[in-house]
Nucleic acid binder design. Sequence first.
DNA 1: AGGGGGCATGAAACCGGTTACAAAGAAGAC
DNA 2: GTCTTCTTTGTAACCGGTTTCATGCCCCCT
Lengths: 320, 320
Amino acid sequence: MKITIGEIARQANVSKGTVSRVINGKSTVAENTRKNVLAVMKRLGYEPDPVARELSMRTKHTLGIWVGAGENRLSPYFNRIWRALLREMQLRATQFVELPEDISHVRTRFDAVLVFNSDEVDARLGLLRDRGVPAVLIGHHPGISCVAPDDVGGGRLAGLSLLSLGHRSLLHLTVGEEAQWARDRAEGFRSALAGATLAGVKVAQVCGEASVLGGYRLMRDAWRAGHRPTGVFCATDEMAVGALGALADLGVGVPAQVSVVGFDGLVELHPGLASVGQDIPAIAHQAVSLALAAIGKDSVRKTVVPVSLIRGTTLGPAPA
Amino acid sequence: MKITIGEIARQANVSKGTVSRVINGKSTVAENTRKNVLAVMKRLGYEPDPVARELSMRTKHTLGIWVGAGENRLSPYFNRIWRALLREMQLRATQFVELPEDISHVRTRFDAVLVFNSDEVDARLGLLRDRGVPAVLIGHHPGISCVAPDDVGGGRLAGLSLLSLGHRSLLHLTVGEEAQWARDRAEGFRSALAGATLAGVKVAQVCGEASVLGGYRLMRDAWRAGHRPTGVFCATDEMAVGALGALADLGVGVPAQVSVVGFDGLVELHPGLASVGQDIPAIAHQAVSLALAAIGKDSVRKTVVPVSLIRGTTLGPAPA
DNA sequence: AGGGGGCATGAAACCGGTTACAAAGAAGAC
DNA sequence: GTCTTCTTTGTAACCGGTTTCATGCCCCCT
């Protein structure tokens, strides 16, 4: 038979209320009885039933995670975020459940939902609002609590780093304008160069796919088209890996002739890759914090998580 | 205020019990009252509280998923299984939560656990047994309910297919003997050839890493070492993709000179890849079924899910 | 000694459902 | 017309906790 709080109470000669108080440590309990109750609990191997607790406390200690259909679960970035969330939840004794595509028949067994940014994000947020479930977005979006890396600052950081190493001819590999993060990274990069363009700095931008292959093609084609940058800033590390491959195939020395800086800090992709590193544990931490804080209230808060430059071995001074 | 069963009962002029009966459709309810109650429920937008239900029914409608530390979450195979499980759960109105590495402090808010096979699997199963949580393994292991593809049958299928197409010189790219699935696939492959070796069929086996790069290296090195098979069976599709790359680099025509068959059916990896296809939705279905059936009892059941040959364009008749 | 304040605890209501049991009413058998 | 049986429904206990409120007790102050 399952051991309940009532059984503990009986064996410890106290009331259920007192046992509950011992468990939660909320109200004060005499040291003697506390010890006694704890001893009985230990002896019987008691574990409070989480479901009963959820019912009376009306908090489920559960967050939902809603991954967009278009989200690339196979990307190393996604994987890192996922694992960081897992760790974070463990620390907070909170479980997390992944929601299926279609939540219309899903019963809300969670206190709040973390949403990954994607094209369908508007529809999703609407659905959640209708059901009264607080949501936190990983990414940028108006009108909702968000957590995102400092994309603008990261772009600027990359630009400034290249400039300070003497690079005067730059190339930016990125995706189209549809994604907010890409716009922000590009904007930051341009802003770093804003004053410098007058001083003879040239910068070009080409757009393609955010993948290794995409980066490879962009770099190869740009080079063939006559671009001869000494510094290349790639909107993602995967593109940067592709760019490195293309440069290798073209026989261009890195970083002797060309420096390459990526974005995300996924050093496992390519040893030595220079990159604007995201603090993924911090992002996970903030996302969960915001989600848990959002329960009950409906405040909207935006959190921007700082980034830092990973120097690596693909970033060096401009050739003379 | 939240709408409860009591509120419905009041507005429909019936008792809570009757409303509950309508919801669950268990016991019989007069058609008139049923309609009436349903109307009130609809009007008020009532949704039963899953937590309260769990408490009184003592089933949590939740499965845990325990992914080993060593498991490669980035593999397309894992990804497919994961998504199939997600769908399966959705169909059954069951949620699933991923368990963190260390479950010692996790409260058991799930009815059963699905475990992915890995090296630490013994320790994990022990922990779960100690806590009295039923577990189902995706893979092979003694003493526990398992779901796995028909690895032996798949290996045999690949072997027979190659033989029937006239191939007499075969090569098997695989990993070491440590993994059960690899042993089984190899065993099936050999068994298909058992009678045929007497009839002048040559077969070689080389071992390496179960990755694209691993497959590439094995194929390249085997060719350089003088192997000239006309049929190649790879233990995983990723290895097969690598092998195809190596053959292309070596200038060997596929399937004109060499046929390549993989295992897993991950056609998205390489268009036209011939492969022993797993029925991943069926695996997910069986895994969840077994897990849900295991609640309460402690029967051990093994399920083997059939495989089928995907012909593709990399498998053809042996050259004359 | 009497009164007030604070701490420890028990009793009971509550969270939102399910379900065993009893009772009422209708229909059918004789 | 009465007895039995079946269907439908209400009542209340229960799942395993939390929390409000009241009470008892001890201590301190005047």
